[in-house]
């Protein structure tokens, strides 16, 4: 008898892997970005399966609302002819080889039993408040790199 959680996890995993495969199969780069956005959204659902609604929301805000949106605008600003860009056989072989290598390396690790939800809203709020300075540094670094890249490229 398969539990509801496992069935949900299996369905979401298959959807996630399918959307990642579409990322490489689709020839149009805009469609590839759509596939990546779907993968980000499904990973937020996987966080919900792990009973982490706050992290699921953050994942949606940052990855889908921020990164995927930026990718959409960037790709839409450029018109590139469609062409096949990935060797499917090489991708399949390499992905399996990497998976085997990672799994072999991690197979000896001992996993503890669940210790409950350590990612409660209160814990996140308290740790955020203690690292406000680091957050400012991260945001500053983010924008500096973006603006710096533009300035450097205009000078080339």
């Amino acid at each position: 008898m398969i539990s509801f959680d496992f069935a949900l996890f299996a369905m979401l995993s298959l959807l996630e892997l399918a959307s990642l495969a579409l990322l490489f199969v689709l020839k149009d780069t805009m469609h590839a970005v759509l596939a990546l956005t779907a993968a980000f959204s499904i990973s937020a659902l996987l966080f919900l399966v792990m009973e982490q609604p706050f992290l699921a929301l953050l994942q949606l805000f940052i990855m889908v609302g921020g990164i995927a949106t930026y990718l959409f605008v960037g790709v839409a600003a450029v018109e590139i002819p469609r062409s096949r860009h990935t060797n499917y056989a090489v991708l399949a072989v390499l992905a399996l080889a990497f998976f085997a290598a990672i799994y072999y390396g991690a197979s000896s690790a001992n996993f503890l039993s669940a210790q409950g939800n350590v990612l409660s809203g209160q814990a996140i709020a308290s740790s955020l408040s203690s690292s406000i300075a680091l957050l400012y540094v991260m945001v500053f670094a983010l924008f500096s790199i973006g603006i710096g890249t533009i300035v450097l490229l205009r000078k080339i």
């Binding site: 996890f9 996630e16 892997l17 590839a32 860009h85 990935t86 991708l91 390499l94 992905a95 991690a106």
Partner: peptide, 28 residues
């Protein structure tokens, strides 16, 4: 159940690594 999530994350990582190695397009 944790092992299933770990295996899934490994599979996703392997697909990403394989994609970097096999794709010729800059954006991909």
């Amino acid at each position: 159940f944790a092992l299933y999530f770990v295996a899934l994350s490994m599979a996703i990582f392997a697909i990403g690594a394989g994609g970097i190695a096999s794709s010729r397009h800059f954006l991909i």
